[in-house]
């Protein structure tokens, strides 16, 4: 029982990392119907950016996260501009393959010895860990890093909701995701909205990369983005691709179920994700919070 409760907290922790990545996937998909495979690698760049800024000089934590978000946001915008925009009016499959290509490129380029190199690194301890006991009888405790994670996610999510529902650019994003042609007829600058979406997604992935390093304190290799990326994407599908609350819900579901599955056997984590995915696709293909899309004929 004690163990299960503690694992729940670990699941929430993991879900937080996924949620920030999943948002990028779901927003981009909502706007241009593209699975941006390379999003996972933006996350990876975020981890490395935070690592290098944090080890370079004793830069305080809030600055590190802002730098990481800025770098990733810029990368996202650049990627869209160079690789995806020229293909926007080509068959959808071309853009999808390109996304795979960009993903592969980022990983393997980063793994070159004179870039990041393929080796394992330890993430510096930016914040000294403290434990706060929540429930003495059950030995349940949270760390300050966990709380920080939750705090940052809450702030970012609130900011995102405000942006999407209250600002002009947010309204334009929703309009473009609903109907690109009509949106452009209404004078919305579609290209700018798409760029902005990549910027937002990149920034969130950057924040996620920072939190990942801070929490797990290890950097396996430049390929480290692949699995969190995939799981976050599956989480976005489970929650209903295109839906922002769905991505968050799916991510926490994914994080928690993965931690529990791993506690049975460390290889079961991904299998669990797959089983949930298949069940959702059979029972409710549009995802938990997704809206049903009726295709125009």
């Amino acid at each position: 029982m004690d163990y299960l409760l503690q694992q729940l907290l670990n699941g929430i922790q993991l879900g937080t990392v996924y949620a920030l990545i999943a948002l990028g996937y779901t927003m981009v998909y909502g706007i241009i119907r593209l699975i941006n495979f390379a999003h996972a690698d933006i996350f990876m760049i975020g981890v490395y950016t935070s690592f290098f800024t944090a080890t370079w000089k004793k830069i305080p934590f809030p600055v590190v996260i802002i730098i990481s978000m800025a770098v990733c946001a810029a990368l996202g915008v650049l990627m869209e501009l160079l690789a995806y925009r020229p293909l926007r009016h080509k068959p959808r499959l071309s853009a999808l393959i390109t996304a795979l290509g960009v993903s592969l490129f980022l990983e393997n380029f980063a793994a070159l010895p004179f870039i990041f190199g393929p080796e394992y690194r330890n993430f510096p301890e930016l914040i000294r860990m403290k434990r706060y006991v929540l429930w003495e009888a059950h030995d349940l405790a949270v760390s300050n890093i966990f709380l920080l994670n939750l705090g940052i996610v809450a702030v970012l999510l609130l900011g995102l909701f405000y942006l999407i529902h209250k600002t002009m650019i947010g309204k334009q994003m929703r309009a473009v995701s609903y109907d690109k042609v009509t949106a452009s007829l209404l004078g919305i600058h579609v290209d700018r909205v798409v760029s902005f979406t990549f910027l937002l997604g990149g920034a969130l992935a950057g924040a996620s990369g920072m939190l990942y390093g801070l929490t797990y304190r290890s950097i396996q290799s430049p390929y480290l983005g692949i699995w969190p990326g995939w799981k976050a994407f599956i989480a976005a599908v489970i929650g209903g691709i295109g839906s922002i609350p769905g991505a968050v819900l799916g991510s926490y579901l994914m994080g928690i179920s993965e931690v529990y599955a791993n506690s049975i056997d460390s290889t079961l984590g991904f299998g669990m994700a797959f089983v949930i995915l298949i069940i959702v696709l059979i029972v409710r293909p549009r995802g938990l919070l997704g809206e049903k899309i009726q295709e125009k004929i």
Binding site: P91, I97, T98, L100, G101, L104, F105, N108, L112, P113
Partner: peptide, 20 residues
């Protein structure tokens, strides 16, 4: 060999952009 996937992926992107 460490350049292999870099070149492959770059080729893939270029082919998709210019000769899908």
């Amino acid at each position: 060999s460490s350049w292999r996937m870099v070149i492959y992926s770059l080729t893939l992107i270029l082919v998709m952009l210019f000769r899908p």
